[in-house]
Computed example of a mutant assay.
Amino acid sequence: MLQYRAEFDATVMFSTGGGLHAQGFKVDVPHADPTEAQIAALFVAACRLSDVERVELRHVRVLAEPHLGIPAVEAAPRRWVELSHVITEGLITLPGLPAPEFAPHLTREASRAVYAPGTEFAIDLITMVGNTGTYLDSPFHRYPDGTDLAGLPLERLADLPAVVVRTAGSGVRTVDVDALEGLEVAGRAVLLHTGGDVHWATPQYVVDAPHLSGAGAQWLVDHGAALVGIDAANIDAMTSAGERPAHTLLLAAGIPIVEHLTGLAELPPTGARFTAAPPRVSAFGTFPVRAYASVPAVEPHDHLRSGGWLPTSGG
């Protein structure tokens, strides 16, 4: 079993004046492809630094090392939580985008002439835009030179430790910095549970939909989030001016975005592992995903005794 460490030199400038230099510093990182923002955030946290204005990294390299001195233990039981909407023929994900169309390429009846007696198959055709159902945006969606779906490393998409930011039921429509401060997001999937999915596939879904602010997006970039997801129509406010600061900032930093999630009420604030992997399509920016999470399989009375999170069925 491998663990990953980033080794680097660092210069830290403080807002109160002065600076700090480090050489050959190492921090544990969650996967083999961390961004410099993630490494910087982990470095600041490891050193418990405050009033940091800027961190500059040099000579960064990621090392894969075996876990030492840790005995093998049986994995704790976990349960699975579906976080994707079902794609059906005629589904309207967003007004103005075409609905998916299903058609047979080879029917079961026609296949009987092709295969041996008693053997039949169905091969079906689906026509749809990439922005259908629950989908993932890669940097190529926003930037022509950004990483496309085929280029995204699995470390950015699969088995990410998740942090759930819960504003559902609060009346808050904009997830801003105040909802994020104090959270450990470096190397994690940050999932915004706004409750917007309650209006899925209805005209109300896009009316004053919950979203992430530009300042919130910048905070997530600065603190090294690995992926950001939301259970609403768009991670940005859908203004008539067409401004999309969250997409612009997150995708420029190489942080994938998952929109139109559902079921986030079933996840604890921390402890879940999140996956949302699209097909490896080249020169393509957005595609539906089967988003899901695994969570510790703990009996409800254990949550009650600890005073912690309880799974619910609604947003």
Results as ranks from 00 to 15, higher is better:
82 E>F: 05
55 V>Q: 03
94 L>W: 07
82 E>P: 02
19 G>N: 04
201 A>C: 06
250 L>C: 07
133 G>Y: 03
310 L>Q: 09
299 E>A: 15
188 R>I: 09
194 T>C: 02
205 Y>F: 15
216 G>C: 07
246 A>S: 14
288 P>C: 02
126 I>V: 15
232 A>G: 06
8 F>V: 03
130 G>H: 07
24 G>V: 01
218 Q>M: 06
63 L>M: 14
12 V>K: 01
151 G>D: 01
68 L>T: 10
267 L>Y: 03
245 P>W: 12
171 G>N: 12
225 A>L: 09
95 P>W: 05
117 P>E: 14
63 L>Q: 14
71 P>K: 05
230 I>V: 14
64 A>Y: 01
127 T>Q: 10
145 D>I: 01
290 R>T: 13
163 V>F: 06
169 G>K: 09
154 L>R: 15
287 F>M: 13
292 Y>G: 15
79 R>K: 15
111 S>W: 03
211 H>C: 13
1 M>C: 02
234 N>T: 04
297 A>N: 13
166 R>N: 14
37 A>T: 12
223 H>E: 03
209 A>H: 09
198 V>A: 15
39 I>S: 04
308 G>K: 06
185 V>S: 05
2 L>A: 05
96 G>R: 07
189 A>P: 04
130 G>T: 07
43 F>Q: 06
151 G>M: 11
122 A>S: 09
182 G>K: 11
211 H>Y: 14
257 I>S: 08
268 P>G: 03
46 A>R: 15
108 R>K: 10
25 F>R: 11
283 A>E: 11
30 P>D: 03
297 A>M: 04
27 V>I: 07
280 R>W: 09
215 A>H: 04
181 E>L: 04
2 L>V: 06
216 G>P: 08
243 E>Q: 11
139 P>H: 08
87 I>M: 06
247 H>E: 13
57 L>G: 07
149 L>A: 10
283 A>V: 08
39 I>Q: 12
247 H>L: 05
99 A>P: 09
80 W>H: 15
72 A>W: 10
121 F>N: 10
187 G>H: 05
43 F>M: 13
20 L>W: 06
314 G>Q: 11
7 E>Y: 00
200 W>E: 08
117 P>I: 01
243 E>S: 13
124 D>M: 10
212 L>Y: 00
74 E>R: 08
273 R>A: 14
2 L>I: 06
63 L>D: 13
194 T>Q: 01
240 S>W: 09
69 G>E: 08
65 E>H: 00
261 L>Q: 08
141 H>S: 15
213 S>K: 02
197 D>C: 06
110 A>G: 00
218 Q>R: 14
164 V>Q: 03
257 I>C: 08
247 H>V: 00
270 T>W: 01
309 W>H: 12
252 A>C: 01
303 H>T: 09
90 G>A: 10
301 H>D: 14
240 S>Q: 09
202 T>I: 01
199 H>D: 14
80 W>G: 03
23 Q>L: 11
278 P>F: 07
142 R>V: 01
